[in-house]
Amino acid sequence: MAIVFKKTRGLTDVPTHYCPGCTHGIIHRLVGEALEELGVLDNAIGVAPVGCSVLAYKYFNCDMHEAAHGRAPAVATGIKRVRPDNFVFTYQGDGDLASIGTAEIVHAAHRGEKISTIFVNNAIYGMTGGQMAPTTLVGQKATTAPYGRDEAHCGKPIRMSELLATIDGAKFVERVTVTSPAHVRKAKKAIMECFKVQIEGKGFGIVEVLSTCPTNWGYTPEESLRWLEENMIPYYPLGNFKRPEEVE
C-alpha cells in the first residue's frame, strides 16, 4: 500500500502536553513540516519560550535551547551570530513575545537578525492559568481581569504584527490562523515563505498564528474556533503585512 500521509520527521515521537482542542499541536506540525520540506531540519537550532510551549524543545526533532521568559529572540541572536549557517527559529506565545519579551523581539527585528519567529497568539496566559495578556481583547475575561479587560484600566490589546511590520529589519510579517483546513494550508504557506526569507539571508521574519485556548477561555474546542473567528480576527486581521518584494 502506498503511504499517502505520514507524520513529519520534524517532530519527535514524544506525546505533547497540550490541552484537547488547543491548536499548538497543528502549529507544531506545520513548523516541523516546513523544516523538513525546506531541508533545514538537520541544520536547525530552535529556541523554546516560557509559556504553554515551554516544552517545545521536546517536540521539535532538532537541536533546541530553552530560553528564559521573553528572551528567545536574544538567545536566537546569540546562536545565529555564532552559527550563521544554521537555521535558527524561535517559537513563542503572546505573554512571552508581546509582554515580557517586547524589547527582545523588537530589537531582533530592528537589527534584522536572520532568524524566524513563530508567534502563537491566543489572547491569554495559558500555562499559568488564564491571566490577562497584552493581547486579551477588551471585555474578555481573564483570572486577573475578572470583570473583563477594561480599556480605561489597561488599554487596548497590542497588535504585534502591525508594530513589527513598521521596522525596517523585519522582512516578512504575516498573520494567519488554523481554524479550518483552508486556514491551515495558508498558515503552512506563510511559515514556508517566512523560513525562506531566513534561508535566503534576507532578514527577520515572523508569522503570527491566532490560536485557541479552550481550557482558559472556558469553551469547547469547537466553540473556541468560532470565538476566535468571531472575536479575534476582527481585531487581529489576517494577511501579509510585509514580504521582501515590497521592501526592495
Binding site: A68, A74, T77, I79, V106, H107
Partner: peptide, 23 residues
C-alpha cells in the same frame, strides 16, 4: 562578532545562546 544588545538582559541571553552553540 561584537554585538551591542538592547539591554543587559538581552546581552546575557545572547551569551546563553552563543555558549550553548559551543563557542
Amino acid at each position: 562578532v561584537f554585538l551591542q544588545a538592547e539591554s543587559e538582559i538581552a546581552a546575557i541571553n545572547m551569551v546563553y545562546g552563543a555558549a550553548g552553540a559551543g563557542v
